[in-house]
Structure formats: C-alpha cells, structure tokens
Simulated assay, not measured.
Amino acid sequence: MKIEYNRPSADSILNKIKYSSSETNVFRVYLGAAPGTGKTFMMLEDGNYLLEHGIDVVIGYVELHGRKETEAEIKNLEIIPRKKIEYRGSIFEELDAEAVIKRKPSIVLIDELAHNNIPGSVNLKRYQDVVEIYKKGISVFTTLNIFHLNSIAEKVESELEIKVSERVPDYILNYVTEIINVDIPAGELIKRLTSGKIYSKEKIQAALNNFFKIENLIVLREISLRTIADELSAQSNKIGNPDDKIELKSNERVLVLISSNPDSARLLRIGSKLAGRLNSNFYVLHINLKHRENNKSEDYERYLSKNISVAENLGAAVFSFQSDDVVSGVIDFVKTNNISHLVIGATNEKRKFFGIFPKKSIVNRLIDSLPNVSFHVIPTTSAGI
C-alpha cells in the first residue's frame, strides 16, 4: 500500500494509470477525518484530469450533499445510471455494480465506501460492491472518513459518544493500494461548515452542537494522522519493492462460532481483527440445534439476530446450520471450508457426566477433533452455545 501525506501530482497519477498493467489496477482511498474535508472534490478533480488525458474514467456514484462546487467538478465525466430499488413504498438509488462491470472503464469513482445499501440490494454494504468491481480488473477511486473503519468506530463511540452506523471492516485495507490523506485543520473545517460549504443552513447549528464540536474534530484529525503514520511504519518495514502489489488474501481462514450469548459480539470483533492481521477470509457460524427448534425464547431470537447483524457489519460471511450436535456441526464446517483459525467462547463452568465424572467441554472436544486448527479460546461470562 502506498500512502501519500501530500497529494501526488496529476502527472504522476496519469503515468501510474497509463503504464500499469491490467493486472495491477489501483484501489485508491481519499481518507479524511470528517465530512467536508474535500475528499469527493479531490477525487472528481483527479478523475477529470485523467479523462482529459485519454483515460476512461466514469462516475459510479457521487453524493453531492447539495454542494455546488462539488457538483460543478463533475464536468464531462460520464455518470453510470444508478440502480433503483423499491423499499417500503419508496424508490431509492444505489450504485449499480453490475452496470459498472459491464461498462468496464479504466477507473470508476465511487463515493462513500462505508455506505449501507438499502435492503433488497445484492450486497448489504457498498464496500462489498466496490471489492467486486475491483476484482474485475477495474481501478477504483473512493472516499472514506477515518471513523468508519470498524476499529476506529469502536473508539469514537466509546470516547466521543458519537454513534457510527456505517462501517467498513479493517481488512478492507488489504485491498487498498493507495491512500490519499485529505487533511484540513479543525478550525478551517468549522469555517467551511459555517459558510455553508458542507451542509445547508438549517443543518449548520445542529452540526456545530454535535459532531462538529471543535474538540471532536481535533480528536478525529489526530486519529486519522496516527492511523496514516501506523500504515507508513508498516509500509517502511515491508521487504522488497514497496511498489509491489500486496497479496490480497492469504491461505488462512478465520471462523468465529457464535450463539445468542451477548458475549458473541466481543468474539466477533476479536475474529475480525485476527482476519485483518492475517489478510484472511472471515467466516461466522451459528449451529441451530434440532432439539431446540421448537423451544426458542424471544430473547434467544433477538440476541442471535443482533449478533448476526454485528457479524455482517464486520464484513463476515455468515452461516447458520442445523445439526443434532454442536461439535459435529462445527467439525463438518471446518473441514469443508478449510478453516485454519477458530475463535470460540468458553466459561469456567464444569459439567458432570452421570453426576460423577467430568464431561468434556465443547471446546475440548473440538480441540481433540481438529488438531490442525489454531484455537483462540476467549473467556465468557456464560455458556457460549
């Protein structure tokens, strides 16, 4: 991954696109600390320059937010028509990934990577659409606020008490080849807001009283710069040519076993971070026991649904299988999908068989049955399954 503290020259962008092979398409992220830093404008400006110099650039999706200067920057860029989806009696517009792939431009500009797609879309999240497009050999320029990265979102919610409903999993960085840091001092961002360059007049005061508090913006900017610095440090330690494209996925596969237990959310976050570090695929499994099929409480269904939602927000592939026994169901899934790491919760509760001899826990039975799998056993406060 190449990270730019300062924006690269237009000529360097042009040369990179012109002389790169079809197998080394670009995944560029314009990263900012908050809305209004100029990410979309800069992306459009770069797209226009490349278009003027013979590169086939199109807009897949751009969110204008009523910003006239951003709208003016579209200029001659072709816009791929959005997909219209009906939901609860209203029509919504989303990125049409299939149309972009069919059009097959050299570069597509796609705003707001962390966007949640409307129900009824092919994918739950826009970043999933973007990855599909990128895998088809199309270069992608996209925008992202730092607090939408899941690990950062957790800190922002706990420390700044700001709800972050749109997120991307940290492993999305495994696909990114370039990050352009679109930095602006907190005071300057406030000026942009109050002058109407970010939101309409009726929304300005509410923004100043909430998200756009000066102390929030200072913290978010520090987080953004620190994240960039960490990535630069990792980049400097990379062996070999730093311009070589990184491998997107390793052969490792991470599985998290979940239930209706509220502790499952913590297991999912641990599994997500592990998958990110390993550059691996991320799976989540719930075993639906047959003998419980007609004996489920409302709390069970509610908590399980909440945990599945967390898993989907973290970008996991979620599976739910019916089985007579948890252990046999997990073993079958692990062997079928070549899982290499299993994250599972465990308590200190000891069960007895016929009231005399200790009965082996689910964790111990799985460890005995899967000697080639690395287990990550996390203490939980109650039974995990």
Rank of each mutant, 00 (worst) to 15 (best):
A114V: 08
I146F: 10
I91W: 06
T143P: 09
E132S: 12
K84P: 01
N116I: 12
R126F: 06
K136N: 15
S90R: 15
V100D: 03
R88F: 14
A97Y: 14
L113V: 12
L124G: 13
H115N: 09
K136H: 15
A153Q: 02
N145E: 02
L109K: 09
L124M: 14
T142F: 03
I101K: 12
H148A: 11
I138T: 06
N150G: 00
R126H: 06
S139N: 02
T142M: 00
I110A: 00
P105V: 08
L124W: 12
I101V: 15
I118Q: 01
S151N: 14
V108A: 14
V131P: 06
V156D: 09
D111K: 00
V156C: 11
K104D: 11
E154H: 11
S139T: 08
E98P: 09
A99N: 05
Y127P: 05
N116A: 14
E94W: 06
Y87M: 09
P105N: 10
H115M: 03
L149K: 11
L113M: 14
D96F: 06
S106F: 04
I85M: 04
N116G: 08
V140N: 04
A114H: 02
N150E: 15
D111A: 03
G137C: 01
I101W: 07
V100M: 05
Y87F: 15
I85K: 01
R88G: 12
T143A: 11
N116M: 12
N145K: 08
N145I: 02
V140C: 00
I110L: 04
E157N: 09
R88L: 15
V122Y: 14
I107F: 04
I133E: 00
V156T: 12
I107N: 06
I133V: 12
F92I: 09
R126N: 06
